[in-house]
Design a protein around this nucleic acid. Structure first.
Lengths: 338, 338
DNA sequence: CAAGGCAGCTCAATCGATGTAGCAAAAATT
DNA sequence: AATTTTTGCTACATCGATTGAGCTGCCTTG
């Protein structure tokens, strides 16, 4: 009825009453399979028109309860404060919608407890797949999902019990380091060992990047200074603090830096401006991640861009094919400019 | 049963069978009101233990179908590619969760059709509130929601039929313009009229910012050049194209710029580097929006930061109080630095 | 003219959780 | 001992959409 449009929602029973037909017919028409169910096109038209008039919207809760598949796909993501994750989320939403899936995203702020809670909540909403992006404990999430028969995937950081799609951190870091060292040599006459800053020593990506960093140094015969590998965490302040500590214990700061994320770069740049340590002779820099403004900061900063469309194509290839055996897919990052 | 954990999900009926009790008891225990329903604590413990063992998770679809309130809150947002919207989304999620609400967010890429579709989908999922952020046609969304008895709010861009929370664009733009003009005078000896670039001429925020821009010029007695108000859209390329066109028709480019968003700033900065038009005498700039790296680009760029926590506090004040009469709440933006 | 076929519907069970109403047994009260 | 109260539970209807199994006429066909 029109008078309680404000308070109650229109259901198929309301429409059935208005059309003088049964709820089954309404359902058949509105779910699009009225041909199969042999509803006349007159009745179909009538019902469709009424539904439009009444502003009818299916009750997904009821619909999904009855159906076998929810067509809901979940993603958990650490933060929305950088281009990398922003782009992952946006691409994910688009690709999910293209496939008729409904994406649900939750930001867990790198909080392990929140990750678990978010995963459980998503299971309650009957997600068919859960993508754990940059999770601190991906295997835990895989286990929780597996216990409910839900398939899960890891993105950005790998796990050992579900397929994982990540950047080729080793190759990317090696090439990035090679470039920074080359720039350093060009600018300063000789290649000196770089500082590595940012990330977590315990995470796979940071470990792989440090390995690439070492390999690149070794290849040009430069010795890495072990005390200059600062996996201090991701927050900008952590990078600032690490640099403060470094500056207070060493006279000569490294002439070049490998920064492990744009978030760390934020702290590094702030520190460089604030401390004045590099005034006049800015360090040669590189960043494992891309940001449009950071890219404009100067011509001495080299950036790798992780291939987000490539990574999500790999994710949806797995989903489209329904695979779920453990595997590690490494997507080469892209080098900007030269 | 354990053997089909992989395939089927545990329900309260499974748990009831395992515990040798009824589904009602299981439901009462797991929904936390077993005291009210006078279930013994022995049985409660037993059921809780079993639920844990079996990795039970409520079926929200079933639960919500039965309940009267869904506790789901929806938000549509244009993009995830800048700090402003990223911060809105992250803050929104946190504040929703604090209140026991489940946030669903959809990115509509400034596509009017997608906005409508997303709104309808959210209604299907029984959202209790829908926040339309930066929507191209907020009133349309309000109407769709109203037809289903769902309350809606506008954020960032105002509508006329639902409460709206936006930045104080006029005051913010006026102060920003004042600062750019002052910097311009300090640097160049005299205040010359600024270029306004970015945004949509048709949207409320751009119109208000242009008004603030004009007022600030008038207050220092500088005449605005009407052909230098370029509301060319939000995408970076649009700003680049607008500047190309401007440069091709004018010999002297403005010495200062008011850029209407970080996204436009991206295009502007790229153009400045690429075109070489400002080499040696960089323009005095200001941007209505904040980005940490853009802030480091040089000391000649003034930024206003929209007060995201303030705006979302206003949004949730309305939600907490259940208000829904139309109103326009303007939150003053924050000036960084000096 | 009976039998079969088919178009165009409706009935009723079902999905899983919730909550009201009610029932049997134990405990407390008179 | 008889009654009332309390405890601890179960039965069942319900939410809205879906779908397999009918059911009723009308039209063919032999």
């Amino acid at each position: 009825m029109n008078r309680d449009r404000q308070t109650k929602k229109t259901t198929i029973y309301d429409l059935a009453a208005l059309a003088g037909t049964s709820a089954s017919a309404v359902s058949a028409v509105l779910s699009g399979n009225w041909k199969k169910r042999r509803i006349s096109s007159q009745l179909a038209d009538k019902i469709t028109r009424l539904a439009e008039e009444q502003g009818y919207a299916v009750n997904m809760q009821a619909s999904l309860l009855r159906r076998e598949k929810s067509k809901i796909i979940g993603m958990i993501v650490p933060k929305y404060d950088n281009r990398y994750f922003g782009s992952i989320v946006e691409t994910f939403e688009n690709m999910a919608r293209e496939r008729g899936l409904f994406p649900i995203i939750t930001c867990t702020r790198r909080d392990p407890a929140l990750e678990i809670e978010a995963a459980r909540t998503m299971l309650s909403y009957q997600v068919e797949w859960l993508i754990a992006t940059g999770a601190t404990d991906p295997d835990r999430i895989t286990d929780i999902c597996a216990a409910s028969g839900v398939k899960s995937l890891n993105l950005d950081l790998p796990g050992s019990r579900a397929p994982s799609v990540i950047s080729d951190n080793f190759a990317g870091a090696k090439e990035l380091t090679r470039r920074i060292l080359a720039n350093s040599e060009r600018r300063l006459g000789q290649a000196s060992p770089l500082l590595f800053i940012g990330g977590r020593g315990s995470d796979h990506n940071t470990a792989e990047r440090v390995r690439g960093f070492r390999t690149a140094h070794a290849e040009v015969g430069v010795a890495v200074d072990e005390s200059h590998i600062l996996a201090c965490g991701y927050a900008p302040e952590k990078a600032e603090n690490a640099l403060d500590a470094l500056a207070s214990r060493e006279k000569h700061l490294p002439q070049g830096m490998f920064v492990n994320s744009t978030i760390s770069l934020e702290g590094v740049m702030r520190w460089i401006r604030r401390s004045g340590h590099y005034d006049g002779r800015p360090p040669v820099m590189g960043c494992f991640d891309w940001d449009p403004f950071a890219a404009l900061l100067g011509d001495n900063i080299e950036m790798v861009r992780q291939d987000v469309p490539g990574m999500l194509n790999a994710i949806f290839d797995i989903i489209d094919q329904g695979l779920s055996q453990t595997s590690l897919i490494e997507i080469p990052p892209v080098f900007m400019g030269s």
